[in-house]
Simulated assay, not measured.
Amino acid sequence: MVKDELRRQHIELPSWAFGNSGTRFKVFAQRGVPRDPYEKVADAAQVHRYTGVAPTVALHIPWDRVADYGDLAGHARELGVGIGAINSNVFQDDDYKLGSVTNPDPGVRRKATDHLLECVDIMDQTGSDTLKLWFSDGTNYPGQDDIRARQDRLAESLAEVYERLGEGQRFLLEYKLFEPAFYMTDLPDWGTAYAHCVKLGPRAQVVVDTGHHAPGTNIEFIVAFLLREGKLGGFDFNSRFYADDDLMVGAADPFQLFRIMFEVVRGGGYTEDVAFMLDQCHNIEPKIAGQIRSVMNVQEATAKALLVDRDALAIAQREGDVLGANAVFMDAYNTDVRPLLAELREEMGLAPDPMAAYAGSGYFDKVVEERVGGSQAGWGA
């Protein structure tokens, strides 16, 4: 049964993970980095080729803007993958210095909302069913703007986008504790996002970015609550040591990832209705290999979550057996699931070790040789 559940896992890749990235001090260039969205999709297809569970790649607009989105979608299909969520960008334009959809200037708000509507148009052209919204909007100083008015402006824009969604489409609303706004962020937490989504209706759901919380936040509680309310739309998986570090998922706290995946399984969220997306930047490690490792980390955490003896756990919980319940939980977490996953991959016609298979494929050397000239993709391109 565990193998059957793992076989149908779907982990979405971010196109931006294959471009150059870095910190606010320096963006680091690497050899063989894609120069356009077509090459990003080709690299994403390599991750799916060796893991078997990463069949879609999310786009970021305007970073992934092309003349013909239908052609890009066809290119993806030819490579054995598809286009996933469309991510909007209303944070990299000078006009958005004081906010996008919450900006006091109605002209800027109109520009930002029009971009969100453009992203829905791109969904129509690519066959995507998910729009992901994140806003850097907020203020840096007390009194800088009217906090309540900004919430009104946000609600107005979200309502317009919601009404534009087509049949079978939804949007996921992302939140972030801080950065780049430091005094007050307009969408700082899951409760604010949840409140807006409840008011809008069933096609508006919350996305949980695992790096967007205050230290010590119990993310698995948030997951359990949103699942209970039918409002968990997906994840942006990454790892953090301090803030929004965007490190490889499971790198900082693999036990937390296991706890999150247990709540997903227990709450009925291990379905196609909850999007499991990566949102990471590979600043110093190779891009494709970093994505493969990230997918494997999610697979391992999921396998352990599926191995929890929920009957034994329920009995211990009912009897108030604190140590017994914890032991059931820890037994699953401490299980080495790597042999199980290697066996599963072989049954799926894949190499048991995706990292080794990719390293021996020669793909990296091939693209380094071919991708000469032009500008490498990166933040903002």
Score class of each variant (00 low, 15 high):
residue 352 P to T: 02
residue 129 D to Y: 01
residue 364 F to G: 05
residue 377 A to C: 13
residue 252 A to T: 10
residue 289 A to C: 00
residue 141 Y to I: 00
residue 268 G to C: 14
residue 347 E to C: 02
residue 251 A to F: 15
residue 204 A to L: 12
residue 52 G to S: 08
residue 318 R to F: 14
residue 364 F to S: 08
residue 296 M to A: 10
residue 216 G to Y: 11
residue 314 A to S: 13
residue 313 L to W: 14
residue 53 V to I: 05
residue 7 R to Q: 03
residue 132 K to P: 00
residue 91 F to T: 01
residue 195 A to H: 14
residue 40 K to P: 03
residue 171 F to Y: 15
residue 81 V to S: 00
residue 151 Q to E: 11
residue 131 L to D: 02
residue 227 L to R: 05
residue 278 L to A: 02
residue 229 E to L: 08
residue 71 D to F: 01
residue 140 N to L: 10
residue 61 I to F: 08
residue 187 L to M: 12
residue 74 G to H: 07
residue 355 M to E: 14
residue 191 G to W: 14
residue 75 H to G: 00
residue 160 E to Q: 13
residue 373 G to C: 10
residue 185 T to L: 09
residue 368 V to R: 11
residue 352 P to L: 08
residue 326 N to V: 05
residue 18 F to T: 03
residue 92 Q to G: 01
residue 63 W to F: 10
residue 260 I to L: 14
residue 138 G to I: 08
residue 274 V to Q: 07
residue 124 D to H: 14
residue 371 R to Q: 05
residue 140 N to W: 10
residue 269 G to C: 11
residue 141 Y to G: 00
residue 192 T to Q: 13
residue 336 D to N: 15
residue 285 E to P: 01
residue 339 P to I: 03
residue 143 G to A: 08
residue 147 I to A: 09
residue 156 E to D: 15
residue 273 D to S: 11
residue 172 L to V: 02
residue 104 P to R: 05
residue 294 S to I: 04
residue 44 A to L: 07
residue 138 G to Y: 13
residue 256 Q to F: 11
residue 294 S to D: 08
residue 326 N to F: 12
residue 229 E to S: 01
residue 60 H to T: 12
residue 43 D to P: 02
residue 155 A to W: 12
residue 49 R to W: 11
residue 221 F to G: 00
residue 25 F to L: 13
residue 295 V to Q: 05
residue 295 V to N: 04
residue 261 M to F: 15
residue 142 P to C: 12
residue 353 D to V: 06
residue 68 D to W: 04
residue 378 G to K: 07
residue 58 A to N: 15
residue 272 E to S: 14
residue 343 E to C: 01
residue 240 R to Q: 08
residue 12 E to A: 10
residue 190 W to F: 10
residue 335 T to G: 06
residue 182 F to Q: 04
residue 327 A to N: 03
residue 9 Q to K: 02
residue 269 G to D: 07
residue 51 T to Y: 04
residue 298 V to E: 04
residue 196 H to D: 04
residue 293 R to Y: 03
residue 172 L to S: 09
residue 250 G to M: 12
residue 336 D to F: 15
residue 163 E to T: 06
residue 343 E to N: 07
residue 301 A to D: 00
residue 255 F to I: 01
residue 278 L to Y: 08
residue 40 K to R: 15
residue 380 G to S: 02
residue 21 S to I: 02
residue 355 M to Y: 05
residue 236 D to M: 09
residue 319 E to D: 10
residue 370 E to Q: 14
residue 328 V to D: 00
residue 240 R to K: 13
residue 34 P to S: 09
residue 273 D to W: 13
residue 77 R to L: 09
residue 140 N to Y: 06
residue 99 G to R: 02
residue 258 F to M: 01
residue 124 D to W: 10
residue 379 W to Y: 11
residue 147 I to S: 01
residue 238 N to F: 10
residue 376 Q to C: 01
residue 275 A to T: 09
residue 48 H to W: 13
residue 292 I to W: 09
residue 44 A to I: 09
residue 271 T to V: 06
residue 2 V to M: 03
residue 177 L to I: 01
residue 218 N to S: 07
residue 154 L to G: 06
residue 325 A to G: 15
residue 370 E to R: 15
residue 138 G to L: 10
residue 46 Q to R: 13
residue 359 A to W: 03
residue 18 F to L: 15
residue 379 W to G: 11
residue 342 A to H: 06
residue 10 H to G: 04
residue 154 L to H: 06
residue 9 Q to G: 00
residue 128 S to K: 09
residue 217 T to H: 14
residue 113 T to Q: 06
residue 200 L to A: 08
residue 54 A to C: 07
residue 103 N to H: 05
residue 21 S to T: 09
